[in-house]
Design a protein around this nucleic acid. Structure first.
Lengths: 270, 270
DNA sequence: TACGGACAGCGAACGGTGTGCGCAATGGCG
DNA sequence: CGCCATTGCGCACACCGTTCGCTGTCCGTA
């Protein structure tokens, strides 16, 4: 299937046939293959497993990830994975944190200036959203797994974001509140969008196609809800993906307006 | 198991024994039971199924919901459900919208006054959060299912919230943006909290116990992240659930500050 | 009253799933 | 050289969602 490093697999698997009932009658040429199936390298490592799970998730979505399939992709048996990973849940948690490792670290330099600070926070939120939409399965996995927020990658960006807030002038406690507001909004928006994107991916269609195909039904369904109706009706004209992007951005800005007001109030008062 | 309406079940199930191999040797007294196992009522309905699925989810969590178990609980076979529901996914979507049906409708009356409007929106956000924390599986299911946002219950509260925003003075488009900010924050925060609550429920412990048991490990894990470290360190003193409640509230207020500023700006300008 | 179609319910079966267990083999270390 | 902890894995178990074809019942019509 994967067709990559097929020979390596053969090296490991067909060599040294079991002496039991499954030795078979095969008169395999002893010179045609390495004499001993020595373990050239650890063959299986936690990092490799996580990496391949990530690739599989990105390629085929969350319901396609099974321990067996993952094992096969790594030229290994399904149960071999359990030497490196306690659970499917643990594996998923590791994968999630691996993905969060893609996030650029927010930099606190110059964040004493409000414009710099705002831009940094806004960028951080956009990075997170992009990350979760690049891997639309993230949302559903994060819901299942729990304890994701103690992974090293996530802690690193939390810490950096707190630093950003404190540099801007917040007390630790307030910095946490501010971060909570921004991250809460970001995760929530991304959840909603990811649900949409997942349905989209399952349909196999283009986003604009999907929308065009869906809109009549939606407009029909919202007949009794005039405001929603009007909203979806005017949504026909614009490009869908652009609409999502700009919608997210205006949301972040609303949130940041609130946060910045709190910051200004605290600076004036103290 | 459920022990409810056991007799009805028996009426339906043991009556009119199969004439095939499973008829058994039973010499059941023909006078000892109702002469005809007439179908008193439809026995199985979509509403009933959704209801019971909801009960099962609340009682045992999302991974405990299987079509077989659900069928058993309804004194029915697993496959009978498929006459009323296309899919497990469809069932889940129905359940999610059923839960959203618990939400009180936000009322737009008096929302021309900013304080009334703020209180209404804040209350709505709190209701949504409470709803999703009352059923902690909601988050993960919403992630899996998609298309949840076209259910009737959800559309009803969206419509009402838009009305609220427009009454306060927003244009339709801006009203949607404002709603998006509030709802995004609410869903995101609830996701994070629900993940915590799910882990908590799986552990079987009390929230304070769980926290106390977890904190040392967390504090150890955050050793390299001074700000997080300090945060969790000071978190020891206060009650955990209260902390979550008030944390959510201050977040909503930050968001609402931003939204209200936009509202004021728009009123001053136009 | 008799019949025939429509249809809810269900048992069996298919092709999967996560994971515990015990055994085979290996490589490092004494 | 020989031991042994560790890694990989085949097997098996219990369970899953869903399809198919059969049964028994209901209701409308002749």
């Amino acid at each position: 299937m994967t067709a990559k490093s097929e020979d390596e697999a053969d090296t490991r698997r067909s060599a040294a046939p079991r002496k039991g009932k499954d030795a078979g009658p095969g008169i395999t040429n002893p010179w045609a293959r390495p004499q001993r199936p020595r373990r050239e390298q650890p063959v299986l490592s936690r990092e490799q497993i996580v990496q391949e799970a990530l690739a599989l998730l990105d390629a085929e979505g969350v319901e396609a990830l099974s321990m067996r399939k993952l094992g096969t992709r790594l030229n290994a048996g399904a149960t071999s994975l359990y030497t490196h990973v306690a659970n499917k849940d643990e594996l998923l948690a590791l994968v999630v944190d691996q993905v969060f490792g893609e996030l650029p670290m927010p930099r606190a330099e110059g964040a004493e200036q409000p414009e710099v600070w705002r831009a940094a926070v806004e960028g951080c939120a956009e990075d997170m959203r992009a990350c979760m939409l690049r891997h639309p399965w993230m949302v559903s996995v994060m819901g299942d797994v729990g304890m994701v927020y103690f992974g090293p990658s996530w802690m690193r960006v939390s810490e950096a974001m707190l630093a950003l807030m404190e540099t801007a002038g917040f007390e630790p406690r307030e910095a946490n509140d501010a971060m909570g507001a921004v991250i809460g909004y970001t995760i929530g928006s991304a959840s909603v969008e990811a649900a949409w994107l997942s349905a989209l991916k399952r349909s196999g269609r283009d986003e604009q196609e999907f929308m065009d195909e869906m809109l009549p039904a939606v407009i029909e369904a919202t007949k009794d809800y005039p405001r929603l109706h009007r909203l979806y009706h005017t949504a026909v004209q614009q490009d869908v993906a652009d609409g999502r992007d700009s919608g997210f951005l205006t949301g972040v800005r609303l949130v940041l307006d609130g946060v910045e007001a709190a910051l200004k109030a605290r600076q004036q008062q103290g």
